[in-house]
Each structure stands twice: as structure tokens, then as C-alpha cells.
Design a protein around this nucleic acid. Sequence first.
RNA 1: CGGGGCGUGGCGCAGCCUGGUAGCGCACCUGCUUUGGGAGCAGGGGGUCGGAGGUUCGAAUCCUCUCGCCCCGACCA
Length: 563
Amino acid sequence: MRMSQLLLPTEREAPADAQALSHILGVRAGLIRQLGAGLWTWLPAGWRVHQKVEAIIREEMNAIGGQELLMPLIQPRELWKKTGRDQIDEIFSLSDRKGAELVLAMTHEEAVTFHVSQLVRSYRDLPLILYHLQLKGRDEPRPRAGVLRTREFIMKDSYSFDRDEAGLDESYAKHIGAYDRIFERSGLEWYRVESDVGVMGGSGAHEYMAPCPAGENEVALAPGYAANVEVASAAASPAKVPPPGSAASEVATPGAKTIDQVAAALDLDPSALLKAFPVVTDGGRTVLALVRGDHRVNEFKLRSVLGEGFRPATDQEITSTIGPPGFIGPVGAEIPVLLDAAVAGQQGGWVAGANKADFHLLGVEPGRDFQFEAADIRSVEEGDVVGGEPIRLEAAIEVGNIFKLGTRYSEPLGATFLDEDGAEHPIVMGSYGIGPARIAAAAIEQNADDSGIAWPKAIAPWEVELVSLGKAGSPEREAAETLYEQLRDLGADVLFDDRDAGPGEKFKDAELLGCPLRITLGKRSLESGTLEVQGRRGLAELEPIALDADSAAVILETLARLP
RNA sequence: CGGGGCGUGGCGCAGCCUGGUAGCGCACCUGCUUUGGGAGCAGGGGGUCGGAGGUUCGAAUCCUCUCGCCCCGACCA
């Protein structure tokens, strides 16, 4: 591609409203432009990146037997009523000229299951993996960070159909293999982490996370361990709690309602306190969740232990069922107590609210002073230990997820098959998503430096940028033209900066755009008989290449050795 | 949905408080010079100041309403 003919609007300055690195550099390097909140255009260079990611995904999906198709973005709302997903807030709704209700698909479970329900009748048709790369519409409450969270985006979503859980496990394992290879080939630093299966149920889920500062998720990492903080479990550092005593005793704590206030008033470490978190479940049960004062309740784990959704109890509910807010505790409370495992696993005389205004209890011992059920209901903290190793927490972008759906969609949509005995069963499904735009954004975030982007070779807009110095018609420009033709003849993925611009501008633009290999051909090249070669990673000066009939081939060899 | 901020040429901004013919840098166009790290000189084009209404002799500037965008939080099958 000749840069003189390319729409590549690079900017010297960052857009004023941009925060995330991938947003700033995506715009500055001329890859993306905004049309509205969460609505982005991929300019030619950016679209090449997107397409390269797509190509990797297609290869790996096809390799596990996935069959590509294409389903509509606009869908009858009726279909979504059958699965109940028409009630989701993020659904874009519209109607046609006849008043028929339509939605923009946020994923394609409904559509694909609808078709499979009609097209698959026999166990002989299973297993099946179908996928497509198609737009998704989501009315996000808050689009953000350029292309990271948008209202319209392309997703690779695939769906597996099996006759039973064992089959699903196989399809799931195949996807893990394909996804591992996709993210590896894309050149990302990535983790496959266990994730929350959500209220929709399902028997297993993983997320693929790419660590980077702009990420919206947090992952807990230790050697040999990776999990979303939503589900991560680890051993807590020991609480600094006084030893067990003979009996609990009341102590006045006037006005001390928060953990910090109580800890300060009693001159104890916050970890010696029991934090009471009363909740009311969707089913109307009131439960007192208890965690250490220095820990936080994990709402995902709590929901999973409770087996249903919940909300924090209101002050009125707390007052009427337990005691004065700020001074509540498990002792004497006439509701079930869920005690976090980190507390249950350590002996001590804990501090808890006395259920009496301006008083707390010292020396409280679970079991002796109150009955409880123990469960892991807290969020892991930096420094917790798993497998003997301390955990660290890192921000990350979710670039993919895989999910065992079971019969969540096949049952409401009537997707069944007949087995060898003629018995009808619901098809067991899995769904698997990847956001190519997020892969591109994560690659920018993970590989940028002060000069711009340093693309992984596999998804760079071009693999090589040939920078031609000197003005049109000069001998050095003619030599560059020749080299460009030779590179093209060899099938090189090359961008040719043939613009009539100064060297500084060309170098800056090349470093901003971030093609892995930069070849410079100027007057000096003709004098020395060599081409200057720079690797984008670290702006490393590489061995010069002789300027002769073999230059193009040597450039490609050099490229092949780059990561 | 709560909180905060911003809308002035393609991009980044000043002007607004204290009303009086819309400005700067970059980018763009023409010419000449220049060509190894975002060039120089000269000339030039482009903006109903987000929109509507109001106050006023006069509104980018003051008032009211409205739309859009960004950030933090909540939310994110």
C-alpha cells in the first residue's frame, strides 16, 4: 500500500476527551474515529488490524470443526420473549413500518437455537459447532475508553450443540484449545480464568483476560493460579485477633459505627472485628453475612451460596429484625448467620456489634456465642495466599469468554433431538465469544511506548513499513520504488511511505503506527549500499541489509525472525 | 441512574467573569526554497461559537430550556 494514497489521518495531539491508551493511540495513529457515544468507525489501517484478528479466529475455529454462517442483527422480539431476554436493559428495541417489534441482537443464542431446533432432529446431526462474526447491539449505560466498551461491535460467537454433558465437555475443551491458540497467536499476554456463571446458571465458565491498565475487570494471579476476582479464593493472612477467652463481654463504643471507628475506639486491628452485612434475598429470607473487618463481602460468591439474588437490608429492616444499624452482630440475632471461612478457620475472641446502641462485644467466639454456617463469601485481597504463593490483583480487559449453557436456551426454544431409542432430549449447548476489537485494543495497551504502538507482528496493520526519503524523482526515491515493487512481488505485507514529506514526519508517523519492521531508504543508503533496519519493539536498530537484488528477500527473512 | 466536566474551523485551545465586526498553534491550499527526526518564507481558504427561545441598540459572552460528548461511581444476560 502506498501511503500517499492511504486515508491515514495521524494526529500529533491526543483527543482531549481520551483517557485510555488504546483510545488515544487508536485515534492518533489514524486507526479509528468516533461517530457517537460508543459508536466507532474503523479507518482503513485499523480495519486491517481487525481483519487480521478475524482471520486468526476463523482459522482456529475452522480447525476445531466450527462451521461459519451469518445470522441477522435485527431480530423479531418474539423470539427473545421466549427466553425472557427481551427484558434485559441493554436490549436495543425498534419497530418496523408495520409496527412489528424488533430488537438488535446482543448475542445470537436465540437465533442459532431457533434454527437448530428446526434443522436438527437426530442424534446423528450432533455434535455441531456453528459460529459467525457479526455485529452486536448493546445499549450500554456507559460506553467508554474508545473501542473497549461500545454500543455496537463485532463479536465472534460460536455455539456448540451436543447430546449430553459429556459431549458439551468435549466441545468446551475444543474451544479452550482454539481460544488458547487464538490469543497466543495474536501476541497478547493473556490468562484464562475461572469466572462467575451468573444467575443464569450453567455448569462452568471461563474468561480470557488480557492484563492492561484500561481494563474493567480484575484478575487474581499467582504462579499456577488465575481467576476473576469475582470467584477467586485464597487463604487470608491471619487476623490480628485477641486469643479466645472464657466469655464475651460488653464494651461501650459510643458513636462508633464503622469498622475504622470501632477499631480505633478499642485499639484493635480491623481484622479483629466482624463486619455484619445483612441481606434480604429475592425469596424474602433475611440472612446475616459476616466477614472480617478488613475483608469485603463478595456479592457473586454470596449470591452463589444463597442460591438466589439478594439486596442489602434497609435500615428499617435491620432495626426491626436485628438491632440498631452500626451496632449489629451475630450474637442473639434471630436470623441465619453466614460466616466467612476466613473467620471460621481461625480461633479468636472477635469483636462484634452487641445489637444495642453504642455497645460492642469483645471475645466473641463463633459456635459458642452464635450458630453459623461457614462459607467462602469474601473477595480475595492482594497478599492472600494460594498454593503457597501470594496473590496479586491486576486490571484486565475481558477479550473472550466461554460458557457451558446446558439447556438454558434449547428448552424454551424447543431445540431437541431423538436418540437411538427414539426418545426426545433437549440439546446441550455451549456459547463462546471473542471481541476482535478488544484484542486489538489490548494489543495496543500492552505494547505501546512513548513513540506510539508496537504491534505484535500477527495483527499489525502492515508487517513492514518502507520509508522512502528524498523527493520524488531523486535516485534514492527511484531505488525505493524498485524495492517496493520487489517486496510486492514476494507477497510482502508492506506499507510504502512515498509521501512528499520530511524525514522527521515520516519517522514519527511510522513509530506511531507501529509496524514491526521499518526499512529506511535514503541518500545514505545509496552511498553505503545498505538499508537501515529498525525493529519497532524498543526501536531497536538491527543489522543493515545490503541494497541489491536480494534486498526484498532478506527483509522478509529478517521479518520472519521477529516476534 | 447518581456525581463532575466540556461543547468556539479537521485536531488542540484562548476569548465568556466585565456584551461592541471571532482569535492562536497545528493541519489544509498556491508558489519558491528545503529533505536523515514533526522545515523556512510569502500568499490564501475554511467557523450560523452544539441547538432553540429570551434579555439588549447589539449576545460566543447574560438568562431559560434542550441536545451531544467525556470522566468517576452504580450497572455490565
